[in-house]
Nucleic acid binder design. Structure first.
Lengths: 346, 346
DNA sequence: CTGTTAGCGCCTTCAA
DNA sequence: TTGAAGGCGCTAACAG
């Protein structure tokens, strides 16, 4: 099964390549003798012909391939978003190729450049940070670029995000309603808008409710378990009085923080409460199960892909920036009785 | 910044495209007047020229792009393996494009076909199941294919895997040494060799030690938290006497199983012990922390990429099939005293 | 040192 | 209904 080209088929069928090309393209097969079409299709099948999408792209000006950039495949929270994208594109005969920045700022421009020079038709980026705007807007001059989940503060690029201000607010109100007044916050990287939003919604809710936010001594460089543990440890080791509850900007950091507090002899939910964000599958299964904020991940991926496709079809299209509302699931880490563990698979 | 081509630069510099091509290629710039080279490079920079890797690929017969296929990006265990691949390739100026089968058997052939028609130079597949052999071997006729982690029983394809028989054995001996004699097993999909291997190593160790393996009533259809919980629940609800410890074929399933047992009022490690596999970052941070088997993930990715590159350079090269030894980390889920939680980031 | 030519695989005029 | 020719962006072989 070496590479089979149109020419190989043409030779075998005794016709010209362009005839083969036409016969194999449903939209122009009608211009070829029906018998010839059948014959050619048979031969193509037999020889295991696979169109060279890329070569085709040269003529058509497209490669039927979308580039997707995520920050960190070690965070399972991206999986449903990616599936929303993959499944949407696949149903249209398009393909998503996924790349990872490893949450390394520098890497984004390299990754984008690679994807562009591989002639992707469009870009869906979930790893954007504030200083990436120039790179992204430059790319947007050539192909549609849609930002998802993470969207820098000031950019004209089309985007779909979660309402993280609202999510932060929900966390704040939940903790206030449980009687907490002194509440710690473990922030994710500050150049990622959705972390800033979570912080803002949370902080203003707490202030409004007459509470005090105890800020971590440092910001997580990356939103990982290890970093969550590290900055929690810093808070523990400081002289300041410990808060009675902590809000970590994502589940991974929350797991890390709970671990660090446990190492310090403190029990959750006995001695303190904790809340995460993202509602990863582990949240329902960890001990204690973790109160977390859930957002429609699959859906945001699906819509991001929709937008990218529509932009490709019509560059004039101006996608409405969307903001998906989150919801909070109280669990054992904030004193909720554990019912059955969640069983869904996404 | 619309697309800039060699021709644009040539026009501006008043030379022929091929001169530009040579000037921009370090390996042939020596054949061009040094002044011209500088001038051309300056113009190229100024215009923001980006080579079209794909077009270049047509002449060179390669695209500097490797396809990588993983089963499930919802499992964070794949991340370090992917990084081993990505970082290795990146250091050579190659790019990894990642695709996911979503652990869906059918999807693999479609994904491979997509990648092939995008003219990837090589394929690294970590999602292989037994019945994929024909597809994979067909692909291998055209480009180097390296299997990593998952490798069907009978295939001539180059592969690098973990020694899962040994890992299973270690789990068995660990549990025996703790005094367990009746031990449950929650198996992953049986058409994935490494799960079969884990089972085999484990079962023979237990038998050798005079123990009894209690098999789950069903096999996990996919190695996920939800499936782990499901088959654990089936074991609980059966009439059979419960084992005193369970071995789940990966961490996710173990978390699910511990959750299911907790729902049934049983405490780990008080009432039963549990062991996972993969040593995902959560294992150290969950409560109880999870005894698990660790394998050199980053390393296997790195080597898989090495092999693929070497095969590309020299199709005659016959990579030694490698089997990386695992190691077991005892934690609270088998009664170990928790020390500091693990802090590494990978 | 530089320009010309040809062609990777495909599709789309244009002409027959 | 079919063939011939041109070109997408790039590079290698061949002239000069």
């Amino acid at each position: 099964m070496q590479k089979v080209t149109l020419k190989d088929i043409a030779d075998r069928a005794g016709v010209h390549v362009s005839t083969v090309s036409r016969a194999l393209d449903p939209s122009s097969a009608y211009r070829v003798n029906a018998q010839t079409v059948n014959e050619i299709r048979r031969i193509a099948d037999e020889m295991g012909y696979r169109p060279d999408v890329i070569a085709r792209g040269y003529r058509k000006g497209s490669t039927a391939t979308f580039g997707v950039v995520v920050p960190d495949l070690g965070n399972p929270g991206w999986a449903p978003i990616l599936r929303g994208i993959e499944n949407n594109l696949e149903s249209r005969g398009l393909m998503a190729i996924i790349t990872e920045t490893q949450d390394d700022d520098q890497r984004l421009s390299r990754v984008i450049e690679h994807l562009m020079s591989r002639r992707v038709d469009a870009l869906i980026v979930t790893a954007a940070r504030d200083d990436h705007v120039p790179i992204l807007e430059a790319a947007a001059d050539r192909v549609p670029v849609v930002l998802a989940v993470r969207c820098p503060a000031r950019t004209r690029l089309p985007h779909v995000v979660f309402d993280d201000v609202e999510g932060g607010r929900m966390v704040g109100e939940h903790l206030l309603s449980l009687g907490h007044r002194r509440i710690g916050q473990l922030p994710g990287p500050t150049d990622v808008t959705h972390f800033v939003d979570r912080s803002q919604g949370f902080t203003s809710a707490i202030r409004l409710g007459g509470g005090v936010v105890v800020e971590a001594k440092d910001t997580a460089r990356r939103p990982t378990i290890a970093e969550g543990a590290r900055i929690m440890r810093m808070m523990i080791e400081s002289d300041e009085e410990l808060p009675t509850a902590v809000f970590a900007h994502n589940d991974l950091m929350a797991f890390g923080a709970i671990g660090a507090l446990r190492d310090a002899g403190l029990d959750c939910p006995g001695d303190f409460h904790a809340v995460g964000y993202d509602d990863t599958p582990m949240a329902a299964f960890s001990k204690p199960s973790l109160t977390s904020v859930r957002h429609p991940s699959y859906e945001i991926g699906r819509i991001a892909a929709d937008y990218a496709v529509m932009l490709l079809d019509n560059p004039e299209f101006e996608p409405t920036p969307l903001k998906f509302p989150p919801s909070l699931t109280p669990r054992a880490s904030t004193g909720e009785q554990d019912s059955d563990a969640g069983l869904s698979d996404d």
